[in-house]
């Protein structure tokens, strides 16, 4: 009698295991679609793209500062894309670091519409190579000056084909209308960015920061040019926020080291 009861418990628990496994068996054919739609890799790098004439070492100080402020040390990988599309790496991604910083710089780092468009293509080459290496499927990005344009171009033209999700984009003093002083003139690059805005990822959260040294700009980029971000992002992405930073270090080149911007990066990008 007693042994019968004992084995009843055993069979009951085996039955329970089988019963709980059933939903899994039934769901299995949908698994792949579910994984493709919902999976987010733990590994999610933060791409940093410097502005024209700055190298991939541009953000060394910024990353140091960010690591100091946040208390967690993230690794820093620097990639330089050569004009022939080959990649040069320096620095490493630590094995257990899920949110490393990856700075992408370019051998040809000159200003100008054609160069910026080329840089966006080179960024795409680096992005695909890194994605292949690390297998991430989402990321955030920050671009200083023309770096913001490079990232925006990349997101409009190439991102969809990579099947990678963009979480957040932060542009610092990015001149969406280049250095055009006259607010009534549209540069060809601006027209292009605006025409392709429908290709921007719908779930993207965008922050655009402007530096204000004078009342019209940060000394190099006119305020109006940064302000034009709204014509590109507004109503296209999940949310678009514009911010203006003034005070010490508010001129164009110093913005990435500006303490207010460091805390904004901390707060909104990481």
């Amino acid at each position: 009698m007693r042994s019968k009861r004992t084995f009843r418990s055993f069979w009951l628990i085996l039955g329970a295991i089988f019963l709980l496994c059933l939903p899994g068996f039934i769901w299995r054919p949908h698994q792949e679609a579910h994984v493709r739609a919902n999976y987010r890799s733990m590994f999610a790098p933060v791409f940093l793209v410097p502005g024209s004439s700055a190298t991939q070492n541009r953000f060394n100080a910024l990353v140091k500062e960010l690591n100091k402020e946040s208390g967690t040390k993230h690794s820093l990988l620097r990639v330089e894309v050569m004009t022939d599309g080959t990649l040069k790496y320096s620095g490493t991604v630590r094995q257990d670091d899920m949110r490393p910083y990856i700075v992408v710089g370019f051998e040809n780092r000159h200003d100008g519409t054609e160069n910026i468009e080329n840089q966006a293509k080179w960024f795409g080459i680096a992005f695909r190579a890194l994605q292949k290496t690390y297998g991430f499927n989402h990321f955030s990005a920050m671009g200083h000056s023309n770096g913001g344009l490079v990232l925006t171009l990349f997101m409009e033209d190439e991102l969809a084909a990579t099947h990678v999700h963009a979480d957040r984009l932060l542009t610092i003093a990015s001149p969406f209308n280049l250095e055009e002083q006259n607010p009534t003139v549209n540069t060809p690059l601006f027209n292009r960015l605006r025409a392709n805005r429908k290709h921007l990822p719908k779930q993207l959260v965008v922050y655009s920061i402007a530096g204000s040294k004078t009342y019209t700009g940060d000394g190099i980029v006119p305020f109006d040019s940064v302000n034009r971000g709204k014509y590109i992002f507004q109503k296209q992405v999940k949310s678009f926020t514009q911010m203006t930073v003034t005070g010490a270090n508010a001129n164009h080149a110093n913005l990435p080291e500006n303490q207010q911007i460091v805390s904004l990066i901390q707060q909104y990008l990481l």
């Binding site: 890799s41 733990m42 590994f43 690390y134 991430f136």
Partner: peptide
Amino acid sequence: AGSGQTIETAQNLAAVL
């Protein structure tokens, strides 16, 4: 922490997908 995901896990999944 985080169901033990590492870079290797992400690379494995990416390869399959």
